[in-house]
Amino acid sequence: MGFVTNSAILPVLVGEGGIILSDKLNHRSIIYGCSASGATVRIFEHNSMFSTIHLTISFGRTEEVLREEIAKGQPGTHKPWKKIIVVLEGIYSMEGELCKLPEIITVCKKYKAYTYLDEAHSIGVVGKTGRGVCEVLGVDTADVDVMMGSFTKSFGSCGGYIVGSKELIEYLKYTCPAHLYGTTISPPTAQQILSAIKVILGEDGSSRCMLNKFWLCTGAQKLTQIRENNNFFRPKLQKIGFKVLGDNDSTVIPIMIYNPGKIPAFSRECLRQNLSTICFYAV
């Protein structure tokens, strides 16, 4: 699954003598991976890229943190860092916000740092052809060093994946414990992933049924429908008084309840209205 992918890959990519710069709101799997890596970990303010002269926040912006750590070097010895990786998510699962990927890449190129992009919540659902935030934000995928994703969401299967250069993938094949000691994806699981990709690309030739009326729906049309539904639903919620987080085009639409005691009642009423929701209490 995607959780294991992040937890197992990050310790292989960077270790002692390296540094990971992680967004403040990154997923727990990334936090575990960073912790297990043995690398120095610095947190930067969520979706804040460039440095400013006066900061009133507890976490620095990406460029400020990056420049400061490069200047200081490794703890104790002050030697140059062996490797610097900036880790972020395509769509943040709890906030529904798209990452500021073009700005992050600008900073990483300036300071020669690697970029690690988690697309678990964006691949297969955003972009004209479902290719994720790079397609939405007009970013060349060649500018992203490591792209991670999950097969458990848009593809309805299980497992996770890593995309990168041929050299990177060959290195991971021989060094990643999750690959070396894990079992092979079963044929039905692999076929489910391939079938989902064909649907997204509009290559399956099937039709979709809605309200007992059959109509041909290509992958592109389905993606357009998802985007239009999201961008219709979000402002309607805001209009009736809900506090809604996230960006347009995002498939994650967080609604803030604020009163923990109301969460069970809200969940039950949504279920009664045949509305699928995920409710939780966050501290």
Rank of each mutant, 00 (worst) to 15 (best):
residue 240 I to G: 01
residue 247 D to P: 01
residue 243 K to L: 05
residue 229 N to M: 13
residue 227 R to G: 06
residue 233 F to I: 09
residue 245 L to Q: 09
residue 229 N to R: 13
residue 249 D to A: 13
residue 244 V to K: 10
residue 257 I to E: 01
residue 246 G to A: 06
residue 222 K to W: 06
residue 239 K to Q: 04
residue 225 Q to A: 08
residue 254 P to E: 08
residue 233 F to G: 02
residue 237 L to N: 12
residue 258 Y to H: 12
residue 234 R to W: 14
residue 243 K to R: 13
residue 231 N to A: 11
residue 233 F to P: 02
residue 257 I to C: 02
residue 257 I to M: 05
residue 227 R to Y: 06
residue 223 L to T: 10
residue 243 K to E: 01
residue 243 K to Q: 07
residue 224 T to L: 13
residue 225 Q to D: 04
residue 239 K to I: 00
residue 233 F to K: 07
residue 246 G to Y: 03
residue 224 T to S: 14
residue 232 F to K: 08
residue 233 F to E: 04
residue 241 G to C: 10
residue 224 T to Y: 13
residue 252 V to Q: 03
residue 237 L to D: 08
residue 236 K to W: 15
residue 259 N to V: 04
residue 230 N to D: 10
residue 223 L to I: 13
residue 228 E to G: 03
residue 241 G to V: 06
residue 230 N to V: 07
residue 228 E to I: 07
residue 231 N to D: 15
residue 249 D to W: 04
residue 252 V to P: 02
residue 231 N to V: 03
residue 255 I to C: 08
residue 249 D to Y: 07
residue 229 N to H: 13
residue 225 Q to T: 05
residue 228 E to N: 12
residue 223 L to S: 12
residue 232 F to R: 09
residue 256 M to K: 14
residue 223 L to Y: 15
residue 243 K to Y: 00
residue 222 K to S: 01
residue 248 N to D: 15
residue 259 N to H: 02
residue 253 I to W: 04
residue 245 L to F: 06
residue 238 Q to F: 05
residue 244 V to L: 10
residue 242 F to V: 03
residue 255 I to V: 14
residue 223 L to A: 12
residue 248 N to W: 03
residue 257 I to Y: 03
residue 226 I to N: 08
residue 241 G to I: 07
residue 240 I to R: 01
residue 240 I to A: 02
residue 253 I to P: 00
residue 252 V to K: 01
residue 234 R to C: 14
residue 245 L to T: 04
residue 223 L to H: 15
residue 254 P to H: 10
residue 247 D to G: 09
residue 242 F to R: 02
residue 245 L to H: 09
residue 236 K to D: 11
residue 226 I to W: 15
residue 246 G to L: 03
residue 225 Q to L: 11
residue 223 L to K: 13
residue 234 R to K: 15
residue 257 I to S: 05
residue 259 N to P: 04
residue 255 I to T: 05
residue 252 V to S: 01
residue 253 I to V: 11
residue 236 K to R: 15
residue 239 K to S: 02
residue 252 V to M: 05
residue 223 L to M: 13
residue 242 F to L: 05
residue 242 F to N: 03
residue 235 P to E: 14
residue 248 N to H: 11
residue 253 I to R: 05
residue 241 G to H: 12
residue 258 Y to K: 12
residue 251 T to L: 11
residue 240 I to N: 00
residue 247 D to S: 11
residue 246 G to K: 05
residue 251 T to N: 12
residue 228 E to H: 10
residue 253 I to L: 10
residue 222 K to L: 03
residue 247 D to F: 03
residue 224 T to H: 14
residue 250 S to L: 08
residue 241 G to W: 14
residue 239 K to V: 02
residue 245 L to A: 05
residue 251 T to W: 12
residue 249 D to C: 11
residue 257 I to F: 05
residue 245 L to M: 12
residue 225 Q to R: 14
residue 259 N to W: 02
residue 243 K to C: 02
residue 238 Q to T: 02
residue 235 P to Q: 15
residue 241 G to N: 09
residue 244 V to A: 08
